[in-house]
């Protein structure tokens, strides 16, 4: 198999994930887009592991680690989103602007 096939797949998937991260409003959808980007990386890792015949199998091991970390990240991210939703009754990222500079006159 040509190495280019998985690599191009990974690049396109990464681009789609990037688009989703920026364009999506809902925080959970943003988390999904992040998953897409992480998976793109995983494809790269596996493909290069196979291509290089790595005796340590670093690619596969790192893929497993990434999957694990992604799971942890999703768990924490969802917890944060839930808390935000409880406090603000929204998960719309553009509406969460508390850290912006206050307009003149407001506190």
């Amino acid at each position: 198999m040509h190495l280019v096939y998985p690599l191009v797949l990974a690049v396109l998937l990464f681009g789609i994930g990037l688009y989703g991260v920026i364009a999506r409003r809902n925080a959970i959808l943003v988390l999904m887009s992040i998953e897409l980007m992480l998976n793109a990386v995983n494809i790269n890792l596996v493909a290069f592991d196979m291509y290089l015949r790595d005796t340590l199998h670093a690619g596969q091991a790192l893929t497993l680690f990434v999957i694990t970390i992604a799971a942890a990240e999703i768990g924490l991210g969802l917890a944060i989103v839930l808390m935000v939703f409880r406090n603000r009754a929204t998960t719309d990222i553009p509406e969460l602007r508390e850290l912006a500079e206050h307009k003149e006159g407001s506190v």
Partner: peptide
């Protein structure tokens, strides 16, 4: 939210 989509598409396409 088309205002956000166009820059998002531009950035994503550029990166890709």
């Amino acid at each position: 939210d088309s205002a956000a989509r166009i820059p998002a598409a531009v950035v994503a396409l550029g990166a890709t």
